[in-house]
């Protein structure tokens, strides 16, 4: 995947997760005490689940982008080396 593709994917994930927790019709449906999910009241679960999901994706995004950058740098170095020869 290219850097641009990765950023687009991240933007989609970000908007989807934020929408889940902020859009009035969605939050109205989630805003209840029962059912308990993983021991937490329903709304509390989503209030924590969304930040955790975002945090995990941020870490994945960082590591993925590092790989892309390192690959691009190696490619550029190989091209420069090739030209020098």
């Amino acid at each position: 995947m290219t850097r641009k593709g990765l950023y687009t994917l991240s933007a989609i994930i970000y908007i989807a997760l934020i929408a889940l927790i902020t859009l009035p019709p969605v939050t109205a449906a989630l805003d209840r005490v029962t059912p308990r999910i993983l021991g937490m009241p329903c709304m509390q679960f989503f209030l924590i689940m969304v930040p955790v999901a975002l945090a995990v994706w941020l870490a994945v995004w960082f590591l993925w982008e590092c790989k892309i950058e390192d690959r691009e740098a190696a490619k550029a170095e190989a091209q420069t080396g090739g030209e020098a020869k």
Partner: peptide, 8 residues
Amino acid sequence: LQLGALGG
């Protein structure tokens, strides 16, 4: 445990 009136 809910947003209630502060939601929406």
